[in-house]
Design a protein around this nucleic acid. Sequence first.
RNA 1: GCGGGCGUGGUGAAAUUGGUAGACACGCUAGAUUUAGGUUCUAGUGCCGUAAGGUGUGGGGGUUCGAGUCCCUCCGCCCGCACCA
Length: 874
Amino acid sequence: MANKLYSAPKREKYWQDVWADSNIFATNNLRNKPKCYILEMFPYPSGRIHMGHVRNYAMGDILARYKRAKGFNVLHPMGWDAFGMPAENAAIEHNTKPDKWTYKNIEAMKMQLKSIGLALDWSREFATCNISYYKHQQKLFLDFFSRGLAYRKSSKVNWDPVDHTVLANEQVIEGRGWRSGALVEQRELTQWFLKITEFADDLLEGLAELKNWPENVRLMQANWIGKSHGLLIRWKLNYEIEGIKELKVYTTRPDTIFGASFVAIAPDHPLSRAAAATNSKLADFCEECRQAGTSIIDLEKIEKKGFDIGIKAKHPLDHEWELPIYVANFILSEYGTGAVFGCPSGDQRDLDFARKYNLPVIPVVAPRDADPANFTIGQKAFTDDGVIINSKFLNGLDTKRAFDAVAKKLEEMDLDDASVVERVTYFRLRDWGISRQRYWGCPIPIVHCDDCGAVPVPEKDLPIVLPGDVSFDTFGNPLDRHPSWALVCCPKCGKLARRETDTMDTFVDSSWYYTRFTSPNHDTPVDHDSAKYWLPVDQYIGGIEHAILHLLYSRFFSRAMGVTGNLPADIKEPFNALLTQGMVVHECYFQKTTNERRIWFEPKEVRTEGEGKNRIAKLVKSGETVEIGDIVKMSKSKKNIIDPDDIISKYGADCARWFMLSDSPPERDIIWTEAGIVGASKFIQRIWRLIDTTEQKVCKIHTPQPVNFGSDALFLRRASHKAVYLVEKNIENLRFNVAIAQIHDFVNHIQLRVNKKGQGLDWAIREAFELLVQLIGPIMPHLAEECWSRLGYQTLLAEQPWPTVDKELIVDDTVTIAIQINGKRKDELRIKRSTSSDEVKRKVFELDIVSRALKGKTPSKVIVVPNKIVNIVI
RNA sequence: GCGGGCGUGGUGAAAUUGGUAGACACGCUAGAUUUAGGUUCUAGUGCCGUAAGGUGUGGGGGUUCGAGUCCCUCCGCCCGCACCA
């Protein structure tokens, strides 16, 4: 008898229409239930969704559907991170407009997302390029500005002289612009900044509260903020130059101060500039340092170099002791004071420097077990904590006490001839530069007036709308070239002035979108009442690549918006729980040309044969052999892409969703395989076949529960309720792969009993079917609806509550305990649960294997772990 | 260099507080059914061994009645930051 196959793609479309028509996923405004806000990082509308999106949104959807069934009022919205460079590049390349290109992409991707069957509230959809969104962002900017959280300052940027734009560090590749290939210049530009540093401490402390965030993300953020405690010490100069009489030096290791043998300053430190003014060789050296690249590779290659400026610094604790001052290429002007004292024995860099310029190396910290008299430094500096030596009054102290002793000594010294000391805290975190010389972004609502300076646009004049009539026929910012857009009157004095033509970094757009979803049509950025009810996001899901920037900026925005009254001030943390999902990876295929270039082939162009080392790949068309490359993230450049559309039209969305979650834990990368998707597809058919062909054999819908059950029925009922219990637990813990394993196990249990006969078995099978359908509901919602209807229900499964577990059924009344002899498992024993310890021992000693092992001796110890293990120690 | 993580069968992976290692799936083997074949169902499957038994979570050591789990050490891989004073 051939079974009817379940036609997933066809039926899925049907159920999607049913859901849409009944509008069940629109979040209601009744606040009579506990809320649950599930959010996946919203997509950039590149044009097509990829498998990473499918994985991301499948995870969120499972939670949303599960929480809905659990009785929560669920908010599960979707929107578009729609500003950004690709739209401008498309405009240049395809002679279109960024807005047209973006909105077309959004339409296409929305269709694709709908085909995945996501339980989304589309009524809250917005794109960050909607005027109705970015006008509120401009309002936020104005509020930040008036509160001093947005300000202008001059700073160094990567400038592409060909494309006429600022480049982010990531866009500079080996010193050249990623698009133009031009050598990137360091330029001093006046830019807008957001004062994230005001919240540095709070952002750091807040991390401790984020218990449901991955540890690695919290650590990355903590390192990024980079708080350090140290001393600011004043070093007097032996010679005054252009009014400079002293150097302020920041150190986290004042305990090593007697090991100092030089002072080093950054090339653009005021003292460097002053000294260079009268020393052309020094000026050349400083220029050379400035020219050097800033990329990581460059920094590694660069040799540590210094230039003795001739002026000496007086040691703060001994003014007779004068140390040389070097301008050095490895000192950062942006960190600390741009000046350090070098202690060669305690810092590898300083040691290398000292060896190169023949400076003294005085060991001042020794390991605890070393002999202080004979401890010397060779090629490696000693950077650990230890005992202070060769340091006068510090000798014998440990690192921490020496820190305090130096601070105290310096504080006690007479101000006149002393080195004033301050205990200071430094952060690595810098303020966030948000100016971009780009068109497709949120305009900064500022007018520059010759007389009044930077004047905020009055709120009543918002929004500042991007002009539509711009050209992309040449490089640079089209807003700058626009004949009239920037020409306005100063809101303050009325004189002719010029609009700010920089737009905001797109990271600003995504820093507050999660608040807007709580009230997407409100006439202020956020409705406080809605925000209070919905925020924080209960579960946020997205890629690890946003571990620092997006997630830190968002945490900053929720705080800053609290300060400006745009959000209730008690909502500090935007995301209560965070899941960072892994990538979808696939091997790639290529042929090498004669000049070692690689030509890549798509997976669908290739067929593989054999296994392991003998596995080879051939082109489907020609049969030519191609090489099998690494398993890497799916990307256009390597063509190792599987198009979700192809999978969904062939196997269905349920199949893609199931496979995405089935084999690996969510945070790990998954390898896309044809075998995997086929396996998922078979499982779908298996469930359908099981229910479709057996449904008429079991009890009819709503049959009352029988009083007695035979052993098969009872076994099945136990398996059913255990499955519900375990699937629920694993979904709650975001271990979808384990939940899926439990469902497999459950289906195996049902399968073994569908053709049996026994007391109450037909009822138990029907119960199992119903529970199974409810368990797969969140993961394979279409198939679940189909089965639910097949079981005779007129209702929608998506609206059913989550099944309740019969607690009595999930505890077995017999248990298997392991019998160990000297900790090694030898046998097992089936026994009634909660049998007394003495009774268990008695039974164990009756066992052959035990008496054989004992050989008449008395065991030295018997350990009984109730319901688990008996360990006999001989 | 600094910080963090990971290492379990042929493969993806499971494993409350330390308590029967390898659930579940892929693959493989055998049988049944159907078919032209795929499919489906049942059973088996860490490794060595015909078996009894031994052995086994990257290597070595330790704590413990008992270690994948805790401690020390070495090796390998991955991620983040990186001249941060």
